[in-house]
Simulated assay, not measured.
Amino acid sequence: MNAVTTLQATPASFLTVGLSLKLSFTLNGQKGMYGSTLLGWKDHAWLVCEWPLQAGHGTEIPQGTPCTVSYLHDGKLVGYRTEIRDRLSAPVPLLFLAFPQTVEEMHLRKHARVSSCEPIVLARMDSVTAIVGGLLQNLSIGGCSVIVPQAPAWLRAGTSLRLEFELAGLGHVTNLTGLVKSSEATEAGCILGIAFRFQDMEYIEYRGWGGSVHQAIEQWTAQKATDSFPPQ
């Protein structure tokens, strides 16, 4: 397990406008995780972020509700405990959080790889008809492993692909370029090792988050690899 370091909350060391946040708090008796974006802060006073869409615009969150926040910042997973301070409904819905007293940081291994079990569509780059479905086995910011029950002859090492798959709970990725680096035949099917090629043509349909496909995969894999962080 990567070591966790506890630091005093110095804004420049853990805050940047535009960070994709994961907020965890109890709403109507049920604990949930909600996506938001950091918009600003006042040193040692408060943080302000977008109202989490998943919570619903008319939802009341009592002041003082405990909340934990986590996100990626400069290659580290950052987390801290805070509480709900206030909300603003107009002109745009905003959520205010208490400025944390301490911050916990975890340095992540490069290209953390996590298990997955989501359908994936593979389409050959130079064809509109060469398409096959598979199952995403694991995922990292650098690439993924996919099992294809019945692989066509064209699906082999060196083939360039367009990928479409779901980042569960985060969004739907389309038009991501991948290059088949390895292909292994097994009883269950063909296992492919695919390297991602980010070319600014890929797209993700977000559910309450912001950023690029690269940032989304980085955020998703880091959070899945460290589900217990920060301590509740």
Score class of each variant (00 low, 15 high):
Glu105Cys: 14
Phe198Arg: 13
Asp200Phe: 02
Thr177His: 10
His107Met: 07
Arg162Ala: 05
Gln137Tyr: 00
Ser182Leu: 07
Ala130Asp: 10
Leu135Asp: 06
Ser160Phe: 02
Cys117Thr: 08
Arg207Val: 12
Ile204Gly: 03
Ala112Phe: 02
Leu108Ser: 05
Thr82Leu: 06
Arg85Phe: 02
Gly189Asn: 09
Ile147Met: 07
Gly193Lys: 10
Glu184His: 10
Ser160Tyr: 04
Val103Ile: 12
Ile141His: 01
His111Glu: 13
Arg162Cys: 02
His107Ala: 14
Glu187Arg: 15
Leu95Asn: 07
Glu118Trp: 00
Arg197Val: 12
Val132Trp: 00
Gly133His: 06
Met106Tyr: 05
Ala123Thr: 12
Glu184Arg: 15
Thr129Val: 11
Ile84Asp: 01
Val146Cys: 05
Gly171Lys: 11
Ala90Ser: 14
His107Arg: 15
Arg197Leu: 11
Ala168His: 07
Arg81Pro: 00
Arg197Gln: 13
Gly169Tyr: 03
Phe99Asn: 10
Val173Glu: 02
Ile120Met: 06
Ala153Trp: 02
Arg156Gly: 02
Ser127Asn: 05
Gly134Tyr: 00
Pro119Lys: 14
Gly133Leu: 00
Gly133Cys: 05
Thr102Pro: 01
Asp200Pro: 03
Arg81Val: 01
Phe196Met: 05
Leu97His: 04
Glu187Lys: 15
Gly142Pro: 02
Glu184Met: 08
Glu83Met: 07
Ile141Pro: 00
Ile120Asp: 01
Arg124Thr: 03
Thr82Lys: 03
Ala168Leu: 11
Phe198Gln: 09
Ser115Met: 09
Gln150Asp: 04
Ala151Ser: 15
Tyr203His: 14
Arg85Ser: 08
Val148Arg: 04
Arg113Tyr: 00
Leu161Ile: 10
Gly143Met: 09
Gly134Arg: 08
Leu167Glu: 12
Ile141Thr: 08
Phe165Gln: 09
Leu163Asp: 09
Leu94Glu: 09
Thr159Asn: 01
Leu161Arg: 11
Ala130Arg: 11
Val114Cys: 10
Leu163Gly: 09
Leu167His: 04
Leu155Met: 07
Glu166Trp: 06
Thr82Arg: 03
Gly169Ala: 08
Ser127His: 02
Leu94Trp: 06
Glu187Met: 10
Arg87Phe: 03
Asp200Leu: 08
Leu139Gln: 11
Asn138Leu: 06
Leu97Tyr: 00
Ala168Glu: 14
Ala195Gly: 08
Gly178Phe: 00
Val121Ile: 08
Ala157Gly: 11
Thr82Gln: 01
Leu139Ser: 03
Ser116Leu: 06
Arg81Asp: 09
Thr82Val: 04
Asp86Met: 07
Gly133Glu: 06
Ser140Glu: 03
Arg109Leu: 09
Gln199Asp: 14
Ala153Asp: 13
Met201Leu: 11
Pro152Thr: 13
Gly169His: 08
Lys181Thr: 12
Arg113Ser: 05
Glu105Leu: 14
Gly189Cys: 07
Ser115Arg: 14
Arg197Ile: 13
Leu88Arg: 15
Arg85Ile: 07
Arg124Cys: 04
Ser115Tyr: 01
Asp86Ile: 07
Ser127Arg: 05
Gln199Arg: 15
Arg87Ser: 14
Pro100Glu: 08
Ile120Phe: 01
Leu176Thr: 12
Leu176Gln: 14
Arg85Leu: 13
Leu136Glu: 06
Leu167Asn: 11
Gly134Phe: 00
Val132Arg: 04
Thr129Ile: 09
Arg85Gly: 03
Ala168Ile: 14
His172Ile: 12
Glu205Gln: 15
